[in-house]
Design a protein around this nucleic acid. Sequence first.
DNA 1: GTCCATACCTTGTGTGTCTACATATCAGTA
DNA 2: TACTGATATGTAGACACACAAGGTATGGAC
Lengths: 114, 114
Amino acid sequence: MDLKRSDLLQGTLDLLILKTIEHRPLHGYAMAQRILETSREVLAVQQGSLYPALHRLERKGLIAAEWREAESKRMAKFYSLTPSGRTQLAEEMDQWQRYARAIQWVLQAEGAAS
Amino acid sequence: MDLKRSDLLQGTLDLLILKTIEHRPLHGYAMAQRILETSREVLAVQQGSLYPALHRLERKGLIAAEWREAESKRMAKFYSLTPSGRTQLAEEMDQWQRYARAIQWVLQAEGAAS
DNA sequence: GTCCATACCTTGTGTGTCTACATATCAGTA
DNA sequence: TACTGATATGTAGACACACAAGGTATGGAC
């Protein structure tokens, strides 16, 4: 069964993560849930995609981690945006709009001149 | 300088190609030009991405090739959509709309409950 | 005492795009 | 005549990213 090869559009995960913690820190598990909710069940972030992405973003200094107690009373690693993460988020949102608009233009282009 | 790592959103090239030959056959070089035009100079398909993609799509039976004389008077390989390519195009357009909408929802989501 | 949801993580694999390179033809021009 | 630039196709190698599948551990419910 290879009907769908991907749950995500490759290259958009960083954007989704950064956006999801824009206003408050969250731990990884909660981010995935939040993305699933806000995308109305369309974007299912797998754990094997999520955690490597978080480590990547942390290495780049775009997010910062802190161990705190979650609502569940268990320890979890909360990530928040750093200043440069905030800049990056703005850039990636621009990029996304730019690409999405461009693709829309191609999809709407007239069959055109024979 | 690694500001942008990609000229394309990964996973969208097949869609762009299929769409571009929806109404008439085109050769590879012309497809890249056409995509660049219709995307208003945003989507620059590299040759090292284009030709492998065309061979991939041909292997999958979504497009079919034929050598013909181009406007330039030179021989070029014209690709046209097969029936299953047409089906695939419809599916990929749906998928794209679905993902693009979902991402938009995430980007517009309220910062939400503290 | 067992199960499930929560929460973190890693390894290996595959796919797709990129850079860089190689080749050839044709038109215009120096 | 030779050069140059646009047209046209292709390959090889590197790399990034998401995925599947596996693992560990804790707390609450039953």
